[in-house]
Structures are given as structure tokens and as C-alpha cells.
Write a protein that binds this DNA or RNA. Sequence first.
DNA 1: GATGAATGAGGATTCATTCAT
DNA 2: GATGAATGAATCCTCATTCAT
Lengths: 207, 207, 207, 207
Amino acid sequence: MSPKIVDKTEKKRTILQAAMKVFARKGFAKAKMNDIALEAGIGKGTIYEYFRSKDQIFINAFHFFIGDMEAEFNKILARDMNPKEKLVAIIKATFDSFFSAGDFGGILMDFWAEGIRNHQQEAMEDVFNLKEVYRKYRQIIMDILEEGIRCGMFREIDTQTTASLLFGCLDGIMLQYILDPAFVDMNAASRTLADIFTTSLTKHKSR
Amino acid sequence: MSPKIVDKTEKKRTILQAAMKVFARKGFAKAKMNDIALEAGIGKGTIYEYFRSKDQIFINAFHFFIGDMEAEFNKILARDMNPKEKLVAIIKATFDSFFSAGDFGGILMDFWAEGIRNHQQEAMEDVFNLKEVYRKYRQIIMDILEEGIRCGMFREIDTQTTASLLFGCLDGIMLQYILDPAFVDMNAASRTLADIFTTSLTKHKSR
Amino acid sequence: MSPKIVDKTEKKRTILQAAMKVFARKGFAKAKMNDIALEAGIGKGTIYEYFRSKDQIFINAFHFFIGDMEAEFNKILARDMNPKEKLVAIIKATFDSFFSAGDFGGILMDFWAEGIRNHQQEAMEDVFNLKEVYRKYRQIIMDILEEGIRCGMFREIDTQTTASLLFGCLDGIMLQYILDPAFVDMNAASRTLADIFTTSLTKHKSR
Amino acid sequence: MSPKIVDKTEKKRTILQAAMKVFARKGFAKAKMNDIALEAGIGKGTIYEYFRSKDQIFINAFHFFIGDMEAEFNKILARDMNPKEKLVAIIKATFDSFFSAGDFGGILMDFWAEGIRNHQQEAMEDVFNLKEVYRKYRQIIMDILEEGIRCGMFREIDTQTTASLLFGCLDGIMLQYILDPAFVDMNAASRTLADIFTTSLTKHKSR
DNA sequence: GATGAATGAGGATTCATTCAT
DNA sequence: GATGAATGAATCCTCATTCAT
């Protein structure tokens, strides 16, 4: 009765990962559906059994990419750590998440580029809202900063701006790594970034 | 002598600025030559009198965009300031440069996205080498940092990584501004960024 | 003996009727094999157990549609009626046959459209010869007209052309009904058509 | 200043006529844009300078085809003739119009087929309303019939149904001609059709 | 110099058909 | 026998680029 049994979810992920590789390699615009099919080792037409369009693949890739990071952050927030430790953990988690994405790092650029254009235009607002994602992550950092100020661990700073800067710094350093891996030591970057922000934020009793 | 006097350079810039507006609005891939022609108020074919191809326009736009910043930085370096002041000036100049680009902010994403892809591929290496541009700017910051350490103003830090982080932070915060201008106060960002880095780098005598 | 007894003929008809519904609804070109499978409540692949191709389904549908009408006409010809009565009976039978086709009326257009193209091309000539079908039906009408002339009931007319016109009129009125059912009263049409032709053909003794 | 001067309207017609030829030969669905381009002796892309899509070509072809007939009919109605003469003139004009369409006769089938489907669906209602076209032409015939009855030239008949039948007969006979030109003498058909209807409709004084 | 009409290579998408289960 | 996942040929349409005027 039931013919060929296929794990749709499994195959969908296979295609998605193939697509992400190709996007990372060529960028969204230059990535051909055929490239994705070849990378996935399937026929061109098969992709359309799992995704309605090239755009849909992109959006799915975005959510796939974001998903992990979100889970990771929530785990950190739930842990029993002081604000400074949380901040360091968030920084470390972001770097880890970036590396677990493996080849797909370059795809970040397309997420950004597409996200920026979308926010200026009308459609897709709901499915591909990079602005919201950023707000959410900034809020997480802001919460930690405010907690630190409340408990007297951090000095009084503009939490919103500082959160933006920290988050921006994470983005920016990854960008440089993607662009020029030989020049950026990511371990050092993780440590130094944590160092700079915690040093600067820490309230010195004696002063 | 010449029947029609046209300032080639002037018109080239007109086209370039039109192109940058369109790129910023739609992204490189979705920007049509016709859009650029319309924006520039000229005929489609005329563009080809000034640029060999769409790619060439992009590369020219890139250099146009970079050019100002480079000049600005050199001016700062030549000025008679201490390292801390220079750092603050560089940060300020970067923000200013970004705003002077006006509408064109969004184009940064395409520069980045294209630049990243190009560095992984072969062609264009010479004409569109984003990697080199970044190395150059990082070097400028590194030089300031090292000068600061030498003269005992900054503590001993990993200058290369710190330069990367500072420069990354500048990129990252602009990205967020482009994406969500209502959320990011650029003046505060400029001040806070300078504050965080100088505070953190400053060598405290008593310790 | 056989593990599963399936009435091949029965299922073939099921598929055929499903196909006819879909053809009527969407036209041959826009009808998808999947639509037919869904309408028939079977799997897409199953259709190919009964028909070699989409074209074959169409041809079979055509013959299925024609089959009834042919039987009906032969019955009329065999009956003991005068030519005028036979003509009226043929007209009535055609209308009835059209309505018995139910939803499938619209499919006539595709039969016509396809038939016309096929006759101008080479292939299918044998399996799908609309020209022959028309010739046959015209001949039936011609025979009745000639019989009427022979027995002095009809005046001397161009039987071939008159047969074409009568048959054309039947086609044409159905077309209008399909297009705009609210505007065409098919009962009135049947009566009026019979009236016009018999009135016009009848030989008036006194003149 | 002004480059290549092209009569857009003229070229549009050229493409339209090429398209009509191809539609007539292959049917709408099987006609490729490339076929039309080849027939028109231009490049594939050029078509899109004049028509937005294949559908638009079809709709334009429809209006082009209808246009002439409408003008012709209005001329007849304006002439000083009695109803019987008008009827004959309308019949003749329809046949003439059909032949002036030359090769394009076969395209009628696609108009019909498409028109029928459209009336069952939603879109295009306004641009491609075959129902309205038929209503208009039936009305023209009805008006003539009613005028004939009023002036005592025609007997009292169901004008709406008779108009449908006459118009249907015109369609139907053309269909047969397209299908099997060797079998249908269009001159005879024109004459016989006029004969049958006028004979049948004429009020005989002595009765 | 300027133009925009013409072009055709290129790519997303559709869908009849196949075939492993 | 029945199925539907997989396939790729086929096709519409886009758009950078050319070139006659």
C-alpha cells in the first residue's frame, strides 16, 4: 500500500544544508537551483517537493541558522551565574554557534543583506524579520547589563547602546573572520572582547 | 573645437551616485541597469559610455565610498594628538563618514557580501579587494594602539585582536543602524564606544 | 486464485470520468495528471496502469463521449418514422446526449480545439479523427434529407450544405449554452431549431 | 538625440499577426514564445517589449479579431435596408470576416475554448469577456428580427432563441470548415443559411 | 555623445512520466 | 496492483549588453 518511505524532515534538512553551502559559496543571487540539487545529490525538480521556491529555501535557512543560537542563549540565561559570567558565556556561545555553522559562515552576509532590504520594503515582514531577531538578542544583553548595574557589579552605563555595541562587535568580528581567517584569531577575539567589556563595565570600588 | 563639452568625470559621478542609491535600495543583484539610468535621468545605453559593465559600476562605487574615509584617516594620523585622542577621532570620523554617505548606507551590505564571496573566489582579486582594505584600516588602529602602549598610556593588550574588535564594532553598529535606525542612537554609540575602549585600555597607575 | 480482483474496465471508466471532469473544468493543457488522480481518488501513478499517457486519456475520453451519441442515432434511424419526424428526433437526441454528458459539456471545446489542430498535423490521425466523426454525422442527416426529398416531403435543397448547417447549428447552440447558460433556453432551442428547419424544408403543395 | 525610430503600433501588429498564425497552427498552449518570435522574424526578448506576457498576446489577438467584425456589423445596421436584407447582409459579413482572418480561422477554437474556461473562473472577466461579445452579437440579430416582426415581414417567433440559433449556426459552420474545408462549400453555406432562415421566418400572406 | 529598441543567454519553475517499494 | 517520491526536459520570462540612428 504505502510505497517508498522517505523521511521528509530528514531530506528537507539535507536540501537545506546543501543550499546553505551553495549560498555561502556563491551568494543567494548567484546560487542556481541546479547547484543546490547537485550539492544535495538529487534532481532539480526534487527540491520543489520540499520547498515552494528559492526564496522559501532562503527563509528556511535563516530560521535553521537562528534556531540553535536562540536555544543556546536561553540555556545560558537559565543558568545560575552572575551578570559578568553570563556576559562572558553569551560571547563564548555566539562564537561557538558561529563555528558550529561550519561552512555556512558566509551565509551570514546574505542574511544581513537580505534582511536589510526586506526591512525597507514591505513583504516577508513576518517570515523574515531580521530586525526582530536583533531586537531580541540586544534585549538579552541589555537584561544582563541591567541586572549587573542593579547588583552593583557594573557601573551606570547606557545599557541599550552598550548592548548594541557588544552585539555589533560580535557581528563585526565574524565578518572579518569570514573575510580574512588568517588574520583573526577567534579564540583571542573571544577572550579579548570579554576582557574589554567586563573591564570597562566593572565598577571599581576604590576610585 | 569640441562640439559638445561634457565633463566626463562629472557625469561619471552622477551615474555612480545614482547607482549607489539604487544598490542601497534594492541590492546589487536586483538593481537593474534601467533603474540606474532612470535614477540618473539618462538613457540606459549612456551608462555604457562611462562604465564597461554592471560589475564595474559596483567596483567604482566601492572605491568611491572608500576613498573619502581613507583621506579622512590620514588627516587624523597627521594631526598632533595623543593616541587616546587619535582613537576617539578615528571613531568619530568613521561615524561621520558613514553619515556623509547618506542613503548609501545600505550599500555597505553589498560591499561586504560581494567582498566576502570574491575573496573566496578567484576573479576581481585586484580590483575589489575588501580584505586589503580591512587590513589597512586595522593596521591604522593597531599603529595607534602600539603607540599608546609604547608611551605608557595603554596597558599591554593584543593589539591585532583589539584593532579587529574595534573595527568590527564600528561595522556592527552601523549594520544595526541600517537595519533599525529607531533603536540605535548613533551619537550615543560613538561616545559610548570611545568610552568603553579608552576606559578599558587605559593603564591605571595604581594597581 | 487472483489475490485482488479489480474490475479493470470499471476502474478505467472511473479514471476517464474524473479526467473528463477535470478537462471540462480546466481544459486539456491546464489539467494536471495529479488533478485527475485526486478527482478519481487514486494515486498519480495508478493512472499509468490504465492509460499510457495524458494524450491517451484524452482520446479515450473522446471516444467515450462519442460512443453514446452514435448508438442513439442508429436507434432513431432504425425506427419507423417519416423523414421529418426523424429529423426532429435527431435534434432532440443531440440535445439529450449533450445534457447526459452533464458537467462534461465544456470538454467539447477541447475536443474541437484539439481535433482541429490534429487534422492539420500528422499524428493521431487514426485514433482521434474528428473529421471522420463529423462526416459520419453529417451523412446521417444527409440521408434523412435525401429520403425526404425522394418521398416529396422536402423541397429540393443542397442536402450536403443543409446537413452541415443543421449540424453546425447544434454545435453552435451548445457552445452558447456552455458559455452563457442563463441566456439560452435549451428546450426552446430544440423546438425552434426543429421548427425552423422543418418549416423551411417542407414542400408547400400550393404555391 | 532621438535614436532608432520605430512605429510601435506597426510592430505590435506584426507580432500580433505572427502570434495569431502560430496560435492557429499549434493552439495557444503548444505555441512557444520562440515560435512567435521566429514567425515574426524577431528575437524572443523583443516580444516582451510589446506585450507583457503570452496571455496578453492572446487577449490582444482576441480584441484584434473581434474589432473588425464589430465595425462591419455597425455599418450594416446603419444602412437603409429592410430586415430581411439586413439579416442576409449580417450572414454574408460574418462569412467575409471569417475569410479575411485568413490563416487565423483556427484561432477561433482557442478563443472559444479559453473564453469558456474564463467564464467559469474568476480572473480576466473584464479583458476577455466572450460572454459579453456573444450577447452583443445576439442582440444585433434580435433587433433585426424584432424590427421584422414589427413591420409584418417576419412571423411571430422567439427572437432570442432564433438569434442564438442563427449565430450558433454561423459558428458551427465555420468550425466545420476549419475542420474539413473540402467538405464545406462556404458560398453555398452562406446562401443556404440565408435561404433557410428567411424562408422560415417570412410571413406568408395567404395562410 | 546619447539613446532605447533589439537581443538571447540564463534561470526559476512546472509537470508528465518512471520506478522502487 | 498501487503508490507517490524523484526526475529533468521543456518553457516563460528577465535583463545585461549591443548597436543603428
